[in-house]
Amino acid sequence: MSRDVIPRHGALDPEVGAAELAARYGLGVSGARPSPVEYTRRLWGRRHFIAAFARARGDGQYSRAHLGRLWQVMTPLLNAAVYYLIFGLLIGTRDGVPDFIPFLVTGVFVFAFTQSSVLSGVRAVSGNLGLVRALHFPRAVLPVALTLAQLRQMLVSMAVLVVIVLLAGQVPTWSWLLVVPVLLAQSVFNAGLALVAARLGSAVSDLAQLLPFVLRTWMYASGVMYSIGNLTADAPLPVRVLLDLNPAAVYIDLTRFALIDSFTAAQLPPYAWGVAVAWAFVLGVGGFGYFWQAEGRYGRD
């Protein structure tokens, strides 16, 4: 007769117990975190949302600017121009680097992809609290979609890059196709990094202020505007190993290797391809797991 004991106006019946009643009707704890497999399945179920959100973000980014989407091309170009002025002309890191303009522009664009992924990732949850609090979806959608938006930007930059490389006198070869696997690995790496940044940024709101400095340090250590090989020829071994394992430097150098004739395999860090794939795997899986662990806590105060 237990069921008849439940009062009509729902004060809980002490004899049945909430947990038992919930179990009987298949109710779950509200806001509980699903298993990683279930989480991945739900994330896949929202793939259309990810694509649409990435597209909307890409378009929305410049919607307040008069020149609109022209900035997608202008921003990387202006960046490259600034670095060329400072490092190419004033400081002269181009000494000993053949084809310095393609070398520099490749570095700037490839690093910008990782940089912007991390920067948009750190605000992925904290900057979309309205959405997070209003609608239920796996929160990993946000950093993944924002990385995808940055990938779209990167594809525009790549088109610009090809034009610059051609203007600089490079001749298209089959090796240019190597850009595709490099970009793929870097995208997975960036998504993982964005997931990590999103979780950290949702808990520590000061991180968004701190991150630009971290990223600038990382950029100066990644051989964007100089050749690491030239600089570290006499450096102690641990320093060289550390610089060679730097994922940003590896993705930059592999892209240069693909596009620039004078950048040969000899200039690549050792095991560059293996290191590139390993970083993508470690950050892709690790970042996803790290973000998943806090699912159910995003959007809370």
Binding site: A32, L131, R300
Partner: peptide, 26 residues
């Protein structure tokens, strides 16, 4: 499920949707 319970519990069928006055979209 947007705020953690200090003690006690909330059980629900599916995922309750909350439509708040400040639920800004984009």
């Amino acid at each position: 499920g947007l705020l953690p319970a200090e003690s006690g519990a909330v059980y629900s069928d599916g995922q309750p949707a909350l439509l708040g006055v400040n639920a800004a979209l984009m």
